[in-house]
Every structure is written in structure tokens, then in C-alpha cells.
């Protein structure tokens, strides 16, 4: 646990020292959502209708944007070698790095999401569920993304491949995340969606570290 927290702290610290990474993710998130009113027109009813979906899709793309560097920096400077050889289980390394990714790329999205919900004319009562669904779902984005990032770590142009590998796997997270918010808007029960969303995150937490660790070992061979 000490090593786990050390690694987590280092990754978060690095993200802050190098700056911009979190800021860029948030900026991308905001701009992407802003494109939709510009594309479909400022009709408040339509915006409110597509709002939850737009915010989730934008969150998903923003997470993806920062994922391809998840293991790449450590791979390029040799730190991954030392992480693999260290006493900390590689699966735990994956979880620590995914957690750092969530803290630096997922959490900021959560913080800015209410503003975007205002942009999209979302029902004020749905704000709580919006945040809850993002909070439960974005960890799954980081964890699933870790598998893709690990598989493409040794590739020069891994970014496009990463999207191709990962986006289909994001479908359940997207569906349950959006359906929770829509339930809240139509004042039906959002709990089933939220539970399913949590289930997806938990299943992901069980599978992704194993798959990503296997992929990382492979990349170093």
C-alpha cells in the first residue's frame, strides 16, 4: 500500500509539475460540448434532450485523449522496467496509474460538468445524478483505457489504434451513465442505472489490471 500510494503521488505530482495536461483535458471537454449547440442550434428543449448524452460522450473522448500517455512516458524513459521489477505487483501498478489518471483527468471533468450542464439547459434537479453518474463511471473509463494504453504502449502511432480498441468497450459505461441522468430528468428511478454503472466499474476493476499488466510485460519483452 505504501508503494501504491507513492506511485500514485508521483504520477499526480508529475501531472501538476508538467502542468497543462489536466487543463487541456478540461478545455477539450468544454469545447467539445460547446460544439453541439453550435451544430444543432440553440433550441433549449433539444439541448436539454441531448445534454446528458453529449456530456457523457465528451467526457469519454476527453478521457481517451489523455490515455495514450498513461504508460508511454514510463515506457520511454525506462521507468516501466523498474516498476515491473519492483516489489509492487504490476497489477497494483496499473491500478495506481489508472487512479492517478482519474485524479488528473477524470475528477477535473466532474468539477466542470455542472457548468456544461447549464450550457446544455439541463434540469437543475438532475445535476446531482449527473455528478454521481460521472463519479461512478469515469473510473471505468480510466481502467478500461489502461488496457488499451498498455496494449499500444510500444507503438509509435498508438493513439488512433487506442481509440479503435477502447471505444467499443466504453459502450456499457456510456449507456448506463446517460440512462441514469435521463431517468433523473424524467423523474423516474435512476438507481438501477447507477447500480449497473457501478457494476461495470467493479467488473472493470477486476479485469483491467490483469489484462493491462499482461500487456505491459509483453511490451517490455
Amino acid at each position: 500500500m505504501r508503494l501504491f500510494l507513492n506511485l500514485l503521488r508521483r504520477d499526480v505530482l508529475l501531472a501538476f509539475r508538467q502542468g497543462s495536461a489536466s487543463g487541456m483535458t478540461v478545455a477539450f471537454f468544454v469545447i467539445t460540448v460547446t460544439l453541439f449547440p453550435l451544430a444543432v442550434g440553440p433550441d433549449a428543449v433539444i439541448l436539454a434532450r441531448i445534454g446528458p448524452g453529449v456530456i457523457w460522450v465528451a467526457a469519454l473522448l476527453s478521457a481517451l485523449l489523455s490515455l495514450d500517455r498513461l504508460f508511454q512516458a514510463d515506457f520511454e524513459d525506462g521507468a516501466l522496467d523498474l516498476l515491473v521489477l519492483s516489489p509492487l505487483l504490476l497489477e497494483a501498478v496499473v491500478i495506481a496509474k489508472a487512479a492517478a489518471h482519474w485524479l488528473t483527468a477524470g475528477l477535473p471533468l466532474l468539477l466542470i460538468a455542472p457548468v456544461l450542464a447549464l450550457f446544455m439547459n439541463l434540469d437543475l434537479e438532475a445535476f446531482g445524478i449527473l455528478l454521481l453518474s460521472l463519479a461512478l463511471g469515469t473510473p471505468a473509463l480510466s481502467l478500461i483505457g489502461a488496457v488499451g494504453a498498455a496494449l499500444t504502449v510500444a507503438l509509435k502511432r498508438g493513439g488512433a489504434l487506442l481509440s479503435l480498441l477502447i471505444l467499443p468497450l466504453y459502450v456499457p459505461t456510456l449507456i448506463f451513465g446517460v440512462s441514469a441522468i435521463e431517468a433523473a430528468i424524467t423523474s423516474s428511478d435512476p438507481v438501477p442505472s447507477l447500480l449497473l454503472l457501478m457494476a461495470v466499474s467493479l467488473v472493470t476493476l477486476a479485469i483491467s489490471p490483469i489484462a493491462a499488466a499482461a500487456a505491459l510485460r509483453l511490451a517490455l519483452e
Partner: peptide
């Protein structure tokens, strides 16, 4: 050999996800 292993990992992750995806799409 490397491609084979990477593809195998992906195929297994995909296979685990297919039922979840199907379920989520039906739900949707």
C-alpha cells in the same frame, strides 16, 4: 509473436465485455 499475444489479450477482454455490451444495448 508480440502481435499474437497482444491480440490474444484484446480478444479475451473483448469476449468478457461482449455480454456486458449486449446487455447494456438491450437495456438502452
Amino acid at each position: 509473436t508480440r502481435a499474437a499475444k497482444a491480440a490474444a489479450i484484446l480478444a479475451l477482454v473483448g469476449a468478457i465485455n461482449i455480454p456486458i455490451i449486449k446487455f447494456s444495448v438491450e437495456w438502452w
